[in-house]
């Protein structure tokens, strides 16, 4: 390639990687939560992220208020949308073979993406806010990415505090350790499923609101996040919540590192190669999970 790589470039890559990684971690935590408590991979996870991004876009377009404030609306809204999906559709396939839940959430995703195509059109939208970067020494820190990082870290920290300290959080963790034992202990597992899906949708939508300020918004933007979130939980070990944090950071770093050596076009394929390599070499994830 003939590109000389300087320490500054490596530093920049590490910073950008961590900034992107925090966002991946937060979104993937949602997917991990649903998988943990129900053994369901939600193919519509990225679609919920897309809906969050559109919420922020319309908030900014119609009201003209700071797009980050839309989180206050998008999060509770998508929490209820998630609970509604769980209550009406997903709950029926929780105990069915995996094929059913994969296909069901795939169907939900197709329907929602195309409802978005119809109502929002397939025009590419963007939120023009907080452009530019801070210059810190030799490094450039994009303002929108820095804010996204801070918000993602805060939301992830709250989610972990909730899982560790609150009674409901403990019930969620108990359910993901063993549904049967949790039930014997008097935990209403169906309610836990409902909350888990709601929280997961809120986390996905938070991701959507944050990326809305950084990337192009269009109805099909979600699929790549479903894929990357899954990669993150594979990296961290399926069903391992702290693993999702590590996995997200790792994915951010690897993607940025790859962009040093490869053209942007090819670096899109890096996540994929990473998934195949991990499945080949260490299918239980880096921290060890419960993959069989």
């Amino acid at each position: 390639m003939g590109v000389t790589i300087t320490p500054t470039m490596v530093g920049q890559v590490v910073i950008s990687g961590l900034l992107a990684g925090a966002l991946y971690s937060m979104v993937a935590l949602g997917l991990a939560l649903i998988y943990g408590v129900m053994r369901v991979i939600n193919i519509a996870h990225g679609t919920l992220l897309m809906l969050g991004a559109y919420t922020t876009f319309w908030w900014f377009r119609l009201l003209g208020i700071n797009p980050y404030l839309s989180l206050l609306v998008a999060l509770p809204l998508m929490f209820f949308v998630g609970m509604l999906l769980q209550r009406t559709l997903v709950a029926r396939v929780v105990d069915a073979p995996e094929l059913s839940s994969l296909l069901l959430t795939f169907g939900i995703s197709i329907a929602l993406v195309n409802v978005a195509q119809l109502t929002f059109t397939s025009d590419v939208r963007s939120v023009e806010f907080l452009t530019g970067a801070f210059l810190v020494g030799p490094f450039a820190l994009s303002k929108s990415r820095l804010v996204a990082f801070a918000v993602a870290v805060a939301i992830t920290a709250i989610a972990f505090w909730f899982l560790q300290k609150t009674k409901l959080g403990k019930a969620i963790r108990a359910t993901s350790q063993s549904s049967e034992v949790a039930m014997v202990c008097g935990i209403n597992v169906h309610r836990i499923h409902l909350y888990a899906f709601g929280i997961a949708s809120a986390l996905a939508s938070a991701g959507g609101s944050l990326v809305a300020v950084m990337v192009a918004i269009q109805p099909e933007m979600g699929q790549v996040y479903t894929f990357k979130s899954f990669l993150v939980i594979v990296l961290g070990g399926a069903g391992n919540y702290p693993g999702a944090l590590l996995g997200g950071m790792l994915l951010g770093l690897v993607e940025q590192l790859a962009s040093l050596f490869l053209t942007t076009q090819l670096s899109e394929a890096v996540a994929y190669v990473l998934l195949v390599l991990v499945l080949l070499l260490r299918p239980t994830g880096l921290l060890g999970g419960r993959a069989t």
């Binding site: 991979i41 193919i43 995996e98 994969l102 699929q223 790549v224 479903t226 894929f227 899954f230 990669l231 594979v234 399926a238 899109e268 394929a269 996540a271 994929y272 998934l275 195949v276 499945l279 080949l280 299918p283 993959a291 069989t292």
Partner: peptide, 22 residues
């Protein structure tokens, strides 16, 4: 198929979800 089908569960489904894009 070789890496993804050695495992049970949704790995194969997701790997196929990304393949087209790649």
């Amino acid at each position: 198929g070789y890496p993804c089908l050695r495992l049970k569960g949704p790995y194969f489904a997701i790997a196929m979800l990304g393949l087209n894009e790649v």
